[in-house]
Nucleic acid binder design. Structure first.
Lengths: 340, 340
DNA sequence: TATCCACACGCAAACGTTTTCGTAAGGTTA
DNA sequence: TAACCTTACGAAAACGTTTGCGTGTGGATA
């Protein structure tokens, strides 16, 4: 088992100094051609690779981006990661991914861990618990130590930093408008509790769309689901004996669950009830009927977030602070769950 | 913007030496109680956190596990990651995730990058291209440098290291047996091309099950799909005018795509055709009808892989090399796509 | 008073790099 | 031959830690 070879070892073998080896490998003119070639040959033979840790310590940067997301087993977030990776790799950055599992504590731990030397900056979507607690000290602290942070999707208005979001309200409005334009009048919404920022925004968009059509929103058409894991029974209770002709669901799971329940009730989609979801994931695409949905363009979000972050990382040190909020366009993908 | 505070700075402020600060923070008896308290108070005030990079360099270990997977936007792999994270976090390890995007080159780059200082060991599932090329020098090299590697799912028989797999053949056999026991006689299989190890193993399991039932396998009941992105048309062609009463698909996507096509052909599931899939993902669970499938227990795989790796990392240095192959049990999850 | 021992702390090396600066040897110029 | 310039290399600092060991101070002991 040959251990990793270091400059020191090469230097010893070749009976030159460490600095000579380092310079030779970098093709410095300070070193004679002869020595350069000898060193390089030796390095190649022993498969020398500079130690990243040492480089990080020396350069005081890691060339690594930290991503912290609420869930790793989640299609939307993974598409965002995909986008980040794309840009990061192009620019020679590595990516560390951690999941907070929607726990505030784990978010804090992960952030502090990565912040103490492992990453130069962060792309993050905050945990549910964090949004609930409204405690952002860990993020503020990270920024105040000079590490840029880009928030995406589940952002925090109070925090001054770069952000990448979709216009959740507008997306929801588009979805609802689509249903209205199809002639639907009794449109229910399946949404989340209010402390989830995106849930609230989407609910508002739904309400706005109704208002624009002079339709009075009805309390009993709004279901704020508490426990996602148990959404089936909540939705089932909600839909029982309810006379709706359309459903707007703020995520995929709610949409397909509703579809399933309607199916069991003997209702036809889209003939009896139309459904529009949010997030263009695998479920929407492959479900029968396939679901009309609002695409969030996750990969694009990742790309933009990564670019913003890298710009900050590679930008001038003392350029006046300037923070951007990028709003990614959503788009309606029309499929089978809404009639033409 | 207060920069990160270091031992040196604290030492300077308090007019003591760096070592005193370090020891004080560690509650060393060498340092007087008085000084200790002073240092700690100051450190807390300035929110001192030891620099991980420096620690890694000093200790020659990073307390980080590298995961390299073929795809990040993939339910099964993310569940594995979930399992790895669970164990890793318990044991104080960090996790770096990279995706090879099924490209050999990217796999090599990622591995070399992480191997040069960023991670102590690896958990990896190889890229399609790597299986095709049969070039494993990068993995061998990593191991020869003393970094343990645990392979999972898409493993490489030739490589001597820890492995975590499911018994793909047995799983496929279970699936096929299930169909046979329901009285199905004309069972088709939708599988991948042979160089994907798990695809081949599953195909073999299918064949074995048929043989045990004294049913001769028919070439025209076997579809080896080349291009996953284009599976719909391949499956559609395959299924046209084909008189089958059951389908075993080696993954979720093939299963639902087949279901969709059958639906369009006016065939009822499970009455006309039964379907069994592989991988218990979101699609299988939420599809209508929900799919009977073989669960791979991804999280469990992750947990076992992480444990194996950490055991190696924390084990004695010169204990005789010993490698384990853990086989995770698969299980049949019976749902609506196969009749009772 | 000379010796010894705790006590409390500092020095320095080490981890693997990069880079600035210094310098010896040899050659060129005046 | 003295002054100078190249060429080719080495020494050392720096990044932030940890830790073994050395050491000055003061008090206790003989």
């Amino acid at each position: 088992m040959k251990q990793k070879v270091t400059l020191k070892q090469i230097a010893k073998e070749l009976d030159v100094s460490i600095s000579t080896v380092s310079k030779a490998l970098k093709d410095s003119v300070e070193i004679s051609l002869d020595t350069r070639q000898k060193v390089k040959a030796f390095a190649k033979l022993y498969n020398y690779k500079p130690n990243n840790i040492a480089l990080s310590l020396k350069n005081r940067k890691t060339k690594t981006i930290g991503i912290i997301i609420p869930e790793i087993v989640h299609h939307f977030f993974t598409t965002v990661i995909g986008g980040v990776e794309k840009v990061a790799n192009e620019k020679g950055y590595n990516v560390i991914i951690c999941s907070s599992n929607n726990s505030f504590d784990k978010e804090v731990i992960n952030l502090e861990m990565l912040a103490s030397g492992s990453a130069d900056g962060f792309i993050l979507s905050v945990a549910k618990e964090t949004q609930q607690k409204k405690d952002y000290h860990h993020i503020e602290e990270t920024m105040s130590q000079g590490m840029p942070v880009v928030l995406f999707d589940r952002i925090i208005d109070e925090l001054v930093c770069d952000k990448v979001i979709i216009d959740d309200g507008k997306g929801a409005q588009t979805a609802t408008n689509h249903l209205l334009s199809l002639g639907c009048k009794k449109i229910a919404i399946l949404t989340t509790v209010d402390y989830i920022s995106v849930g609230k925004l989407r609910t508002n968009g739904y309400l706005r769309a109704l208002r624009a059509y002079d339709i009075t929103a009805r309390e009993d058409y709004i279901l704020k689901i508490e426990d996602i894991d148990n959404c089936e029974s909540e939705i089932s209770d909600f839909l029982e004996n309810k006379d709706v002709d359309a459903i707007f669901a703020v995520n995929e799971l709610f949409a397909v669950t509703a579809a399933k329940i309607l199916d069991e009730q003997g209702k036809k989609i889209p003939d009896d009830v139309s459904i529009v979801g949010f997030t263009d994931g695998i479920l929407s695409k492959h479900f029968i009927p396939s679901l009309t949905t609002i695409s969030q363009h996750g990969e694009e979000m990742g790309i933009r977030a990564a670019k913003l972050l890298i710009d900050k990382l590679e930008g001038e040190e003392d350029v006046p602070e300037e923070y951007k909020t990028v709003i990614i366009d959503t788009s309606l993908i029309q499929r089978q769950s809404t009639k033409k």
